[in-house]
Amino acid sequence: MASRIRLEDRECPLSTTVQHVGEWWTLLILHDAFDGYTRFDQFQKSLDISTSMLTARLKTLVADGLLERRPYQTNPVRHEYALTERGRSLRPVIVALAAWGNQHLPQEQRSMVLVDAATGEEVEPVVVDARTGRSLQDSDAFVFTAGPAAGPGMRARYTELGRPRSEPAGAEDAESRRA
């Protein structure tokens, strides 16, 4: 896929993430992979996707390190596509996107819901701060700001918004030791 990232966005994690997973078929293939599909014909049947499109998307997912291509049959050689650790780390993102979609549908129109595997009870996923457990839903309590590796453009963006610059872990201690 041709890069759609603007030069000034190359350091933005959202822009670079969308470059990897923002394409329609990519998210659907990853969703199928989370459901346990690994073989080309399974993806093709589930998604009703053309052979050429599926081939291209799978190649990109392998090149991006989200899927691993490995042989499962030798005569003739056939390959399967398994999620890598990097690919598995996208599961909360896929779950959050599906949950967002379900929030905007009446209960009777939901074709897929997330449930507790042990109880079968529907769950409502939320994104929380791992340190405090607070929901990130509150847009006033949590904001983006320039991080320690931010370039001049990113720093200017958040300075204009009046946001404090984040410091790398331990920076405060190092500063106090110098004083």
Rank of each mutant, 00 (worst) to 15 (best):
S3A: 07
R177L: 05
T17C: 12
G65D: 11
R57P: 02
P92D: 11
A117E: 08
L66A: 01
A117G: 01
E85G: 04
Q42C: 05
L114T: 01
H31T: 15
S176C: 09
A98C: 06
D9E: 14
A130R: 13
R165S: 10
R39G: 02
Y72M: 04
A117D: 06
G101S: 06
H31P: 04
E23A: 13
R39M: 05
R69M: 10
E175S: 12
A82F: 07
A2M: 14
A150V: 00
G120T: 14
T17P: 12
W100M: 06
G87L: 15
D9V: 07
N102I: 01
V95Y: 02
A98M: 10
A171I: 03
S89D: 14
I29P: 14
E175N: 12
E85V: 12
E121C: 11
Q19W: 13
P125M: 05
V127K: 01
L28V: 01
C12W: 14
L58T: 05
E68S: 10
L97M: 01
R134S: 12
Y37W: 08
T26K: 08
A130P: 01
L83T: 06
V18D: 15
D138H: 02
E8S: 09
D129Y: 10
K59C: 07
N102D: 08
L105N: 00
E68P: 08
G133C: 08
E122T: 01
P152V: 12
L28K: 09
A179H: 12
Y158T: 09
Y81T: 00
E167M: 14
A2R: 02
T55P: 06
L7E: 15
T119H: 11
R163M: 15
L161W: 02
Y81I: 03
L97Q: 04
P71W: 07
M154A: 10
P164H: 08
P125T: 03
S89P: 13
